[in-house]
Design a protein around this nucleic acid. Sequence first.
DNA 1: ACTATAGGCAAGTTTTCACTTGCCTATCAA
DNA 2: TTGATAGGCAAGTGAAAACTTGCCTATAGT
Lengths: 97, 97
Amino acid sequence: MDDEIFKALADPTRRSILDELTERSGQTLFEICSRLNMRHGLTMSRQAVSQHLAVLEKAGLVEIRREGRYRFHDLDPEPLRHLVERWTGPRTRENDT
Amino acid sequence: MDDEIFKALADPTRRSILDELTERSGQTLFEICSRLNMRHGLTMSRQAVSQHLAVLEKAGLVEIRREGRYRFHDLDPEPLRHLVERWTGPRTRENDT
DNA sequence: ACTATAGGCAAGTTTTCACTTGCCTATCAA
DNA sequence: TTGATAGGCAAGTGAAAACTTGCCTATAGT
Protein backbone atom coordinates (compact mmCIF):
# COMPACT_ATOMS: atom_id res chain seq x y z
CA MET A 1 0.00 0.00 0.00
CA ASP A 2 2.80 2.36 0.89
CA ASP A 3 4.43 0.96 -2.18
CA GLU A 4 2.00 2.74 -4.48
CA ILE A 5 2.52 5.99 -2.63
CA PHE A 6 6.30 5.85 -2.85
CA LYS A 7 6.16 4.87 -6.51
CA ALA A 8 3.73 7.69 -7.19
CA LEU A 9 6.09 10.18 -5.57
CA ALA A 10 9.08 8.93 -7.52
CA ASP A 11 8.17 10.82 -10.67
CA PRO A 12 8.98 14.55 -10.84
CA THR A 13 5.98 15.31 -13.04
CA ARG A 14 3.67 13.75 -10.47
CA ARG A 15 5.28 15.78 -7.72
CA SER A 16 4.69 18.92 -9.78
CA ILE A 17 1.06 17.92 -10.15
CA LEU A 18 0.79 17.61 -6.38
CA ASP A 19 2.40 21.04 -6.08
CA GLU A 20 -0.17 22.47 -8.45
CA LEU A 21 -3.08 20.89 -6.62
CA THR A 22 -1.68 22.10 -3.32
CA GLU A 23 -1.78 25.63 -4.62
CA ARG A 24 -5.16 25.38 -6.31
CA SER A 25 -7.42 22.49 -5.55
CA GLY A 26 -10.12 21.19 -7.88
CA GLN A 27 -8.41 21.69 -11.21
CA THR A 28 -9.48 19.87 -14.35
CA LEU A 29 -7.21 17.80 -16.53
CA PHE A 30 -6.77 20.61 -19.06
CA GLU A 31 -6.04 23.14 -16.37
CA ILE A 32 -3.36 20.90 -14.92
CA CYS A 33 -1.87 20.37 -18.36
CA SER A 34 -1.58 24.05 -19.14
CA ARG A 35 -0.27 24.96 -15.70
CA LEU A 36 2.36 22.25 -15.86
CA ASN A 37 3.40 23.76 -19.14
CA MET A 38 3.30 27.41 -18.03
CA ARG A 39 4.77 27.18 -14.59
CA HIS A 40 6.90 24.05 -14.59
CA GLY A 41 8.12 24.07 -18.19
CA LEU A 42 6.67 20.65 -18.84
CA THR A 43 5.32 20.02 -22.31
CA MET A 44 3.57 16.71 -22.51
CA SER A 45 0.44 15.23 -23.96
CA ARG A 46 -2.86 15.32 -22.15
CA GLN A 47 -2.81 11.53 -21.98
CA ALA A 48 0.50 11.51 -20.20
CA VAL A 49 -0.90 13.82 -17.53
CA SER A 50 -4.04 11.74 -17.33
CA GLN A 51 -1.98 8.62 -16.70
CA HIS A 52 -0.03 10.40 -13.99
CA LEU A 53 -3.29 11.41 -12.35
CA ALA A 54 -4.45 7.80 -12.46
CA VAL A 55 -1.30 6.75 -10.61
CA LEU A 56 -1.85 9.47 -8.02
CA GLU A 57 -5.46 8.41 -7.60
CA LYS A 58 -4.53 4.76 -7.07
CA ALA A 59 -2.06 5.84 -4.44
CA GLY A 60 -4.87 7.70 -2.67
CA LEU A 61 -3.18 11.07 -3.06
CA VAL A 62 -5.69 12.59 -5.45
CA GLU A 63 -9.46 12.35 -5.47
CA ILE A 64 -11.34 12.65 -8.71
CA ARG A 65 -14.92 13.83 -8.92
CA ARG A 66 -16.86 14.13 -12.12
CA GLU A 67 -19.36 16.82 -12.87
CA GLY A 68 -20.81 17.01 -16.34
CA ARG A 69 -18.02 16.82 -18.80
CA TYR A 70 -15.50 18.06 -16.30
CA ARG A 71 -13.31 16.03 -14.00
CA PHE A 72 -12.04 17.86 -10.95
CA HIS A 73 -8.97 16.77 -9.04
CA ASP A 74 -8.45 17.31 -5.35
CA LEU A 75 -5.33 16.64 -3.35
CA ASP A 76 -5.54 14.32 -0.37
CA PRO A 77 -2.32 14.76 1.59
CA GLU A 78 -3.47 12.45 4.39
CA PRO A 79 -1.54 9.35 3.26
CA LEU A 80 1.64 11.40 3.29
CA ARG A 81 1.56 12.50 6.89
CA HIS A 82 3.16 9.54 8.60
CA LEU A 83 4.84 8.06 5.56
CA VAL A 84 8.46 8.27 6.67
CA GLU A 85 8.00 7.87 10.39
CA ARG A 86 9.25 4.33 10.28
CA TRP A 87 12.72 5.78 9.77
CA THR A 88 12.51 9.16 11.47
CA GLY A 89 10.56 8.13 14.55
CA PRO A 90 7.06 9.37 15.34
CA ARG A 91 7.96 12.87 16.53
CA THR A 92 10.24 15.51 15.12
CA ARG A 93 9.86 18.10 17.86
CA GLU A 94 13.55 18.31 18.58
CA ASN A 95 14.04 19.45 15.01
CA ASP A 96 11.61 22.36 15.27
CA THR A 97 14.14 25.14 15.28
CA MET B 1 18.05 16.81 -4.88
CA ASP B 2 14.72 15.68 -3.51
CA ASP B 3 14.45 13.75 -6.72
CA GLU B 4 17.18 11.32 -5.70
CA ILE B 5 15.54 10.80 -2.33
CA PHE B 6 12.11 10.05 -3.78
CA LYS B 7 13.60 7.75 -6.39
CA ALA B 8 15.60 5.98 -3.71
CA LEU B 9 12.46 5.39 -1.68
CA ALA B 10 10.53 4.05 -4.65
CA ASP B 11 12.09 0.61 -4.45
CA PRO B 12 10.79 -1.87 -1.83
CA THR B 13 14.18 -3.52 -1.40
CA ARG B 14 15.75 -0.17 -0.58
CA ARG B 15 13.02 0.56 1.93
CA SER B 16 13.73 -2.81 3.57
CA ILE B 17 17.40 -1.88 3.73
CA LEU B 18 16.46 1.33 5.51
CA ASP B 19 14.31 -0.72 7.88
CA GLU B 20 17.26 -2.98 8.62
CA LEU B 21 19.62 -0.09 9.24
CA THR B 22 17.04 1.57 11.45
CA GLU B 23 17.01 -1.52 13.62
CA ARG B 24 20.74 -2.13 13.63
CA SER B 25 23.06 0.59 12.44
CA GLY B 26 26.55 -0.01 11.06
CA GLN B 27 25.97 -3.24 9.19
CA THR B 28 28.29 -4.47 6.47
CA LEU B 29 27.24 -5.40 2.96
CA PHE B 30 27.20 -9.11 3.75
CA GLU B 31 25.22 -8.61 6.92
CA ILE B 32 22.61 -6.61 5.05
CA CYS B 33 22.45 -9.30 2.37
CA SER B 34 21.84 -12.12 4.80
CA ARG B 35 19.35 -10.16 6.88
CA LEU B 36 17.36 -9.18 3.81
CA ASN B 37 17.26 -12.85 3.01
CA MET B 38 16.41 -14.11 6.51
CA ARG B 39 13.94 -11.52 7.64
CA HIS B 40 12.46 -10.06 4.47
CA GLY B 41 12.50 -13.13 2.24
CA LEU B 42 14.63 -11.37 -0.35
CA THR B 43 17.16 -13.49 -2.20
CA MET B 44 19.35 -11.40 -4.40
CA SER B 45 22.97 -11.10 -5.34
CA ARG B 46 25.44 -9.14 -3.29
CA GLN B 47 25.93 -6.80 -6.23
CA ALA B 48 22.26 -5.97 -6.37
CA VAL B 49 22.33 -4.98 -2.71
CA SER B 50 25.51 -3.03 -3.27
CA GLN B 51 23.86 -1.07 -6.06
CA HIS B 52 20.89 -0.32 -3.87
CA LEU B 53 23.21 0.97 -1.19
CA ALA B 54 24.92 3.20 -3.74
CA VAL B 55 21.55 4.72 -4.62
CA LEU B 56 20.78 5.27 -0.95
CA GLU B 57 24.17 6.87 -0.44
CA LYS B 58 23.72 9.24 -3.36
CA ALA B 59 20.38 10.27 -1.91
CA GLY B 60 22.14 11.06 1.37
CA LEU B 61 20.14 8.50 3.30
CA VAL B 62 23.01 6.15 4.08
CA GLU B 63 26.56 6.95 5.09
CA ILE B 64 29.32 4.53 4.24
CA ARG B 65 32.54 4.33 6.22
CA ARG B 66 35.36 1.96 5.41
CA GLU B 67 37.52 0.22 7.98
CA GLY B 68 39.99 -2.33 6.74
CA ARG B 69 38.24 -4.70 4.45
CA TYR B 70 34.83 -3.90 5.92
CA ARG B 71 32.37 -1.28 4.82
CA PHE B 72 29.89 -0.17 7.44
CA HIS B 73 26.57 1.44 6.59
CA ASP B 74 24.77 3.94 8.76
CA LEU B 75 21.33 5.38 8.27
CA ASP B 76 20.92 9.14 8.03
CA PRO B 77 17.20 9.87 8.36
CA GLU B 78 17.74 13.64 8.34
CA PRO B 79 16.83 14.21 4.68
CA LEU B 80 13.51 12.47 5.30
CA ARG B 81 12.22 14.69 8.07
CA HIS B 82 10.68 17.51 6.09
CA LEU B 83 10.37 15.69 2.78
CA VAL B 84 6.61 15.82 2.35
CA GLU B 85 5.89 19.10 4.11
CA ARG B 86 5.42 20.85 0.78
CA TRP B 87 2.09 19.00 0.55
CA THR B 88 1.13 18.43 4.17
CA GLY B 89 2.12 21.82 5.55
CA PRO B 90 4.86 22.27 8.16
CA ARG B 91 2.95 20.99 11.21
CA THR B 92 0.88 17.88 11.70
CA ARG B 93 -0.07 18.40 15.34
CA GLU B 94 -3.77 18.51 14.64
CA ASN B 95 -3.49 14.96 13.40
CA ASP B 96 -1.96 13.59 16.60
CA THR B 97 -4.88 11.53 17.78
C1' DA C 1 -28.73 18.37 -35.31
C1' DC C 2 -24.09 19.98 -35.46
C1' DT C 3 -19.79 21.30 -33.59
C1' DA C 4 -16.50 22.17 -30.13
C1' DT C 5 -14.77 20.89 -25.76
C1' DA C 6 -13.38 17.53 -22.02
C1' DG C 7 -11.94 13.30 -21.46
C1' DG C 8 -11.19 7.80 -22.28
C1' DC C 9 -9.06 3.52 -24.28
C1' DA C 10 -5.64 0.76 -26.07
C1' DA C 11 -1.85 -0.35 -28.79
C1' DG C 12 3.07 0.78 -29.56
C1' DT C 13 7.67 2.96 -28.56
C1' DT C 14 11.41 4.39 -25.83
C1' DT C 15 13.73 4.91 -21.82
C1' DT C 16 14.83 3.77 -17.28
C1' DC C 17 15.61 0.57 -13.66
C1' DA C 18 16.66 -3.77 -11.18
C1' DC C 19 19.35 -7.49 -11.36
C1' DT C 20 22.80 -10.82 -13.02
C1' DT C 21 27.27 -12.50 -14.64
C1' DG C 22 32.05 -12.69 -14.87
C1' DC C 23 36.14 -11.14 -13.52
C1' DC C 24 39.20 -8.15 -10.63
C1' DT C 25 41.21 -5.86 -6.14
C1' DA C 26 42.11 -5.48 -1.19
C1' DT C 27 42.56 -7.01 3.50
C1' DC C 28 43.42 -10.46 6.95
C1' DA C 29 44.77 -14.92 8.98
C1' DA C 30 47.43 -19.16 8.84
C1' DT D 1 52.73 -16.44 0.65
C1' DT D 2 48.71 -18.80 0.04
C1' DG D 3 43.93 -18.95 0.63
C1' DA D 4 39.74 -17.15 2.28
C1' DT D 5 36.82 -13.24 3.04
C1' DA D 6 34.86 -8.51 1.90
C1' DG D 7 34.00 -5.81 -1.65
C1' DG D 8 34.39 -3.33 -6.69
C1' DC D 9 33.69 -2.66 -11.81
C1' DA D 10 31.36 -2.93 -15.98
C1' DA D 11 28.81 -4.98 -19.67
C1' DG D 12 24.56 -7.31 -20.54
C1' DT D 13 19.59 -8.79 -19.91
C1' DG D 14 14.78 -8.35 -18.89
C1' DA D 15 10.99 -6.04 -17.26
C1' DA D 16 8.58 -2.03 -15.87
C1' DA D 17 7.59 2.77 -16.44
C1' DA D 18 6.82 7.10 -19.11
C1' DC D 19 5.11 8.91 -23.03
C1' DT D 20 2.99 9.08 -27.72
C1' DT D 21 -0.39 8.20 -31.33
C1' DG D 22 -4.78 7.38 -33.20
C1' DC D 23 -9.27 6.83 -32.60
C1' DC D 24 -13.59 6.81 -29.72
C1' DT D 25 -17.30 8.64 -26.22
C1' DA D 26 -19.84 12.14 -23.67
C1' DT D 27 -21.40 16.67 -22.44
C1' DA D 28 -22.55 21.41 -23.64
C1' DG D 29 -23.51 25.35 -26.50
C1' DT D 30 -25.71 27.34 -30.71
